[in-house]
Design a protein around this nucleic acid. Sequence first.
RNA 1: GGAGGGGUGGCCGAGCGGUCAAUGGCAGCAGACUGUAAAUCUGCCGACGGAAGUCUACGAAAGUUCGAAUCUUUCCCCCUCCA
Length: 414
Amino acid sequence: MEYKSSFLNEAAARGFFYQSTNLETMDEYLCTKGRLAYIGFDITAKSLHVGHLIPVFLMRLFQKHGHKPVILVGGGTTKIGDPSFRNTTRPMLSDEQIADNLEGIKKCLIPFFKFGTGESDAIIVNNADWLNNLNYISFLRDIGTYFSINRMIGFESVKAKLSENNTLSFLEFNYMILQAYDFYKLFTEKGCAIQFGGQDQWGNIVCGVELIRKKTGKEVFGFTIPLLTNSDGKKMGKTASGAVWLSRDLLPAYDFWQYWRNVNDADVIKCMYLFTDIDVTEIKKMESVQGQELNELKKILADEVTAIIHGRDSLDAIHKTVENAFSGSTDLSAMTSLPKYSVEKQNLDSVSVIDIIVAAGLCASRGDAKRLLRGGGVYIDDKQINEEYKLPTDKNLLKLSCGKKKHLIVEIVE
RNA sequence: GGAGGGGUGGCCGAGCGGUCAAUGGCAGCAGACUGUAAAUCUGCCGACGGAAGUCUACGAAAGUUCGAAUCUUUCCCCCUCCA
């Protein structure tokens, strides 16, 4: 389908579009540059992770097409916790934790946008600014009157929670109303007439659209992104061993790059569309690539995503490390992106490989490290070692590997 | 307020006095095969210890018992039905 606005065309072509309210009018509306749209992030951790990338990249696209992204951080709503499609209640966070997380998240957002006061410069707003000081009675009279419980319990997100015998607390039930209120605030105070969100946010977004219509008689728009899953059905961006963080304090650029280098074959093209700035027509040409050659695409994908978040400068070191670490090269000094661990020469007798593995955080416990070693998962300079192995005394650099992908440079110092 | 049913390892879910560090599934880790992919097969999967073993753990606390995830009491939490 062809849209009038360049933004919708590209968003749809790249796979960002799931559903929207009044598509035609919104399309028309977006033909004028400098429109505002917002998306909200809860601040439950001190960094964004790969799961947040889809909305972030959508916003980036929005800015690319001359519009103004409004990033809403949920300093207020995080205190409530969005219950949509969750079966456990979110843990309550203290004010200090929230403030701390907020700083971290802001940092994560910086590489994606141009911030400022210009027509299409992104801004960050915090809903704590208007939610924290709400007066209960006047809020109920002013806003609560527009919400019907009958209607709210009809929303899929609520129904799901109720039918699975989970408790939906009144606190959580209010999340929807507050999110609608956010939209209302941003519309009336900043003229922001579009809200983006994940597919699971549909109900919450529609609530906002309705609230604004009832209160102001104006039409605003909601736009949702499809729930993207891996080829194996898991939510995209979720890895098993914890989230893939965007903050470099939590995850070094090298590991971030590796995450993308290792995506499933079936997901490479999808990720190209969503997470890179590569032109749609260019990606189209890549769609025919099959089999082993996909590895090349994975490298491009990894490069492009990493460049956006960690800067293009970070790629050099990563490439050098990868070329050496995965080719059996013995040039350990070239693998600068690998973590390092130092051992003093005089301690060599008392320090075992297991000690190093645990101290460097490659295994969670000594038992874990031992099992790994027994199972043949530990290598020194690419040679599998066994329990009798002693660290050599005649070298000053060693490559210690746990499995084929996790490497550590062991430095023996005087 | 009343009656009933529950709370077990990251999750789901068995066990219902010793053989239980706890079946099974999922997730995870490693090995084989490959392409740093997927699928498949094999092994591992509480902590400490070289090992024997020790410790911690079946919602919390007390108790019965030689011995408790399993029995009793109290407490906390969740669910269902009734009012």
